[in-house]
Amino acid sequence: MAEWVQACGESDVDPEDVIRFDHDGRTFAVYRSPEGEFFATDGLCTHEKVHLADGLVMDETIECPKHNGRFDYKSGQAMGAPVCVNLKTYPVKREGGQVLIEI
């Protein structure tokens, strides 16, 4: 059953950046867009299971640190070779300076 879990504080993520969040044996990536909005996806690239939080956020895309596969982190959409499988995304809300994701 889906539950809301606290992932980080708002100030833990810089604008246009990403951090890793591990919970209950799973790993996620939490993003902050250049406009300051928060998003969350699965933490591992769909190509070779690499932590996306080590990658580079540019505008609305996250680029995997290993092979430069890119995803739109707002929709999870894979943006071309070598990645072809979309990333799962999760709902995000902010409460009292904290960022929560529904997993």
């Binding site: 690499v50 932590h51 080590d54 990658g55 580079l56 680029e63 640190p65 290993k66 430069n68």
Partner: peptide, 11 residues
């Protein structure tokens, strides 16, 4: 370790 330098090298 791991991909610690990936982001800086990419930029």
């Amino acid at each position: 370790p791991g991909h610690a330098v990936a982001r800086d090298v990419r930029v």
